[in-house]
Design a protein around this nucleic acid. Structure first.
Lengths: 204, 204
DNA sequence: GCATTTACTGAACAGTGTTTATTATATTTG
DNA sequence: CAAATATAATAAACACTGTTCAGTAAATGC
């Protein structure tokens, strides 16, 4: 059964080839401008071939969005050995903010665009998102237990913190912060300052 | 010069016709599915005619996005005679949240989508957005003066509050709150609870 | 060696935003 | 009033898009 095995490997390899090309093109020129024909050209296959490996365009971008979560979770794991839960919470926020500013296209796909989630809608759950949320929920729960932040339901508090940072980032990424742009002040700096203010209000 | 006047009026009427049709279709089926040909069909003109009145599709949606701001600002004016600045701030948040949940498509266009802002990018400012932000900034400044909320720079504080509510709403609208969905709990309720928690942390 | 499965593709379908050459009408001028 | 001009609208085309499907060529199983 070696031939069958090889064939399966080859199939996975070509699937990987499509994903890698799509990722490259996506990070270079964004979602809209990355067409099936673009990807097909890049990997030197016909557009129809891609549909032998993916049901639709959004399925490719679902995989890419998962890669984004892998990157984010890796950051969470790498830079988070802090024992004090509040400090860890602050660090979590900084990591999240930094990830978004460093990988705006990934962030867009993961948290703003409708594309990657269009298929999961009914039949499944948003696993990638739920996993990352756990990091936050755990730290928040610990903060609440040790009474380091304003009391509330762990889920509500976690959602609040996530919403806050996401709000900052998404307004920035989708260019709505122009109205708040003081002369000479860099936007990323404003974001960091805002996060500091928020943490100040949160602290008990 | 009466003929010229009438012609000008007619021209504005047709422009209005396009906008009204586009708005109707947009609220019925969203941005992507509202095509120039759709609008042309609806008003019984050829697609090319629309380009005599608008430079590009996004220019139409820029106008619609401005209409959204008119609606929001009207809400701000109507329901906001509260004298206590902190209560007024809380009310402002509720109005904003309510507007978003009642008009999710308008909200998307105003604060999430790239489309309407694509043309302003270089040559102009985002007037509509700046005007609405002023309502918030004024109330926040008053709250800070009367030391009702945690101290900070008025601009940073305003940006923080806006970001927070926008974060809640945009995660909800773009369906990222599934991971936080407790059994039976309605999402809009969670949003309101989160806003309450945030206001609690803000209060001094 | 032949039948069958597998992998791939060209071409087409139904759409999209946008441009341009052309036509029909209305207005102005001689 | 007739000719010249200005205005308004459009049919058709361009260059794209995601997606499907019939047909082909090669590899595999018997």
């Amino acid at each position: 059964m070696s031939i069958k095995d090889r064939k399966e490997r080859d199939k996975l390899d070509r699937r990987k080839l499509i994903i890698e090309s799509a990722t490259k093109l996506f990070l270079e020129q964004g979602y809209e401008k990355t067409s099936i024909r673009n990807i097909a050209d890049d990997i030197e296959y016909s557009p129809a071939t891609i549909y032998l490996y993916f049901k639709e365009k959004d399925e490719i971008f679902y995989v890419i969005h998962e890669q984004g979560f892998d990157l984010l979770n890796k950051e969470f794991i790498n830079h988070n050995q802090i024992t004090d839960p509040f400090e860890r919470l602050a660090e979590l926020g900084k990591i999240y903010l930094n990830f978004a500013l460093t990988n705006p296209d990934y962030y867009d796909l993961m948290f703003i665009m409708r594309a990657p989630l269009s298929e999961i809608k009914c039949h499944s759950k948003w696993e990638a998102g739920e996993n990352s949320f756990q990091y936050l929920l755990n730290t928040v729960t610990e903060c609440l237990d040790k009474k380091l932040i304003v009391d509330g339901d762990p889920l509500i508090v976690s959602m609040s913190i996530w919403s806050y940072v996401h709000g900052l980032i998404s307004l920035f990424i989708r260019e709505r912060l122009q109205s708040v742009n003081i002369e000479g002040e860099q936007n990323p700096n404003l974001l960091a300052q805002s996060l500091d203010y928020f943490l100040k209000t949160l602290k008990v």
